[in-house]
Design a protein around this nucleic acid. Structure first.
Length: 253
DNA sequence: ATGGCTACGGAGCGTAGA
């Protein structure tokens, strides 16, 4: 067991990943877990009810797991090598948000609704979700807090492969709400790391036709110890990939 | 390329994803 006095510095590594079905992605998940061995995984779109979640794989890898799933769609999880405390999932009814305290930091796994089409009911649900999410993050403003997930919004024009695209995930109202989260003091650390999602259709990945939909938002205290971050594009090249790449965040503790 | 893929549920093809 390492003690803080034994080492000059320690790295805490987090990966957030929209897996698009944890059961369909188990083989890829094990590869990423082995290659990167993160302390914490934040997962989205596990697409499985809790009783069918493949817990044993995670426990074999030494992770404690908190899940909020539902049948067939949505579903979020937090996996940590540290104890999971203060687990809460009551932010919304659907399985789209899970928070915990683990390894000395607060973390949240977030799966923002897709919104389907601008000015539809699902779109307004998405806008409402993003609005409420900022208020939720503000509860952690003075903590070491990291929210990772699929925010389903490309924050800026350069986060979409089509320069003038203004459709779903890139509309002004969606972008303004994400901007409000940044302006509330939560930094989007992977702005210059490229796309995180490529459509299965039209062979989007081969042409690098992507969107940057997955993000980490760090409170000021988290950003002060932020060390390094990236998009793990190689995961999109595996057999039977998720349409999202995992994203990585490292803290120097 | 508003059909073109992938996964789900449930046993056909409709729904969702973004």
């Amino acid at each position: 067991m390492l003690h803080k006095s034994d080492v000059v510095s320690t790295i805490m590594r987090l990966i957030s990943w929209n897996v698009n079905s944890i059961r369909a992605r188990m083989e890829n998940f094990l590869k990423i877990a082995k290659e990167y061995a993160p302390d914490i995984f934040l997962l989205q779109e596990t697409r499985v009810e809790d009783s069918l979640f493949p817990l044993e794989y995670f426990e074999d890898l030494g992770y404690n797991v908190a899940i909020k799933g539902q049948k067939g769609r949505n579903g979020v999880a937090i996996c940590s090598r540290h104890m999971l405390e203060e687990v809460k999932s009551d932010f919304c009814e659907e399985a789209r948000y899970l928070e915990a305290f683990s390894g000395g930091i607060f973390i949240a796994s977030v799966y923002v609704p897709n919104g389907q089409e601008i000015d539809t009911a699902p779109y307004y649900y998405k806008l409402d979700f993003l609005q409420k999410l900022k208020d939720k993050f503000l509860d952690f403003k003075d903590e070491i807090f990291i929210a990772g997930g699929d925010f389903n919004v490309a924050p800026r024009a350069e986060d979409v492969y089509i320069a003038d695209y203004k459709g779903i995930a890139a509309s002004l109202r969606e972008r303004e709400l994400l901007k409000a989260i940044r302006e509330a003091g939560f930094q989007d650390i992977l702005e210059d790391k490229g796309y995180t999602w490529w459509d299965y259709r039209h062979r989007g990945f081969l042409q690098d036709h992507g969107f940057r939909l997955d993000q980490f938002y760090l409170s000021e205290k988290a950003h002060n110890i932020f060390n390094n971050g990236d998009v793990i594009r190689s995961a999109r090249k595996l057999e039977r990939p998720s349409d999202h790449a995992p994203i990585l965040c490292e803290l120097g503790i």
